[in-house]
Computed example of a mutant assay.
Amino acid sequence: MAWTVSGWYSDTLKLALALDIALDLERDDHKLALYSNSLTPDFSATAPAYSTTAEVSGTGYTAGGAVITGTTLASTGGYTTWDGDNVEWASSTLSGVRGANAYADALGTNNLILGVDFGSAYETADGSLIVAWAGTGIGRIHVVP
């Protein structure tokens, strides 16, 4: 299988809403790790956690990914939106980068928060790979019918 869709990891949200984990989306210590197309995200998995399986490697990239900074959490018009600064790997040489997982690095369990399907594989050759978030943020949830 492979990346086919982006989404929230439902068990992590359930654990946060039940106050079983202290997931604070406004913290600036969550990370974004890059993966090849050999990863098939399971958004309904129980206790999904960061893993190096299918994580890309290359010059300018460190296993575990990069920190997502400037994070905010807002609620407006029935949507709860998580946003942050774009994430960049400068002077990198990477290939086969198909998706990314955002995870709570500060939690001892490294819970996966959200997976992002890039739609196709990307590569860099001593260049920059930038994950630029949509105008609607890293992810949002519609909470009002």
Rank of each mutant, 00 (worst) to 15 (best):
residue 23 L to P: 01
residue 87 V to L: 05
residue 92 S to W: 04
residue 134 A to K: 14
residue 114 L to K: 14
residue 115 G to A: 03
residue 100 A to R: 12
residue 57 S to N: 13
residue 77 G to K: 05
residue 97 V to C: 01
residue 87 V to G: 03
residue 133 W to H: 07
residue 82 W to C: 09
residue 17 L to E: 10
residue 86 N to C: 00
residue 104 A to E: 12
residue 125 A to P: 01
residue 3 W to Q: 07
residue 111 N to E: 14
residue 123 E to M: 03
residue 64 G to H: 02
residue 2 A to K: 10
residue 69 T to K: 12
residue 60 G to A: 07
residue 89 W to H: 12
residue 110 N to P: 00
residue 132 A to I: 01
residue 52 T to R: 13
residue 79 Y to L: 13
residue 145 P to D: 06
residue 121 A to P: 00
residue 77 G to H: 04
residue 136 T to K: 05
residue 90 A to W: 00
residue 4 T to W: 01
residue 63 A to I: 03
residue 139 G to R: 06
residue 17 L to R: 09
residue 57 S to R: 03
residue 134 A to F: 06
residue 20 D to W: 10
residue 72 T to H: 12
residue 140 R to A: 14
residue 119 G to A: 05
residue 94 L to Y: 06
residue 81 T to L: 08
residue 139 G to D: 06
residue 20 D to G: 04
residue 95 S to N: 15
residue 84 G to P: 04
residue 35 Y to D: 07
residue 7 G to K: 02
residue 128 S to C: 04
residue 130 I to W: 00
residue 7 G to R: 09
residue 27 R to S: 14
residue 13 L to N: 05
residue 113 I to S: 06
residue 115 G to Q: 07
residue 2 A to I: 02
residue 79 Y to W: 14
residue 74 A to P: 00
residue 120 S to H: 12
residue 123 E to Y: 12
residue 52 T to Q: 10
residue 65 G to F: 07
residue 122 Y to Q: 04
residue 33 A to P: 05
residue 126 D to T: 15
residue 116 V to N: 06
residue 118 F to D: 02
residue 118 F to L: 10
residue 4 T to V: 11
residue 101 N to H: 15
residue 9 Y to T: 09
residue 109 T to K: 13
residue 54 A to P: 08
residue 54 A to M: 06
residue 69 T to S: 15
residue 30 H to M: 15
residue 15 L to S: 09
residue 87 V to K: 09
residue 10 S to N: 08
residue 143 V to P: 00
residue 61 Y to S: 03
residue 137 G to C: 10
residue 35 Y to P: 10
residue 50 Y to M: 04
residue 60 G to V: 02
residue 29 D to P: 01
residue 72 T to G: 14
residue 18 A to M: 08
residue 42 D to E: 06
residue 131 V to T: 05
residue 120 S to G: 01
residue 10 S to G: 02
residue 82 W to S: 12
residue 144 V to D: 09
residue 5 V to K: 15
residue 4 T to A: 13
residue 60 G to F: 01
residue 132 A to F: 06
residue 110 N to Y: 01
residue 26 E to S: 15
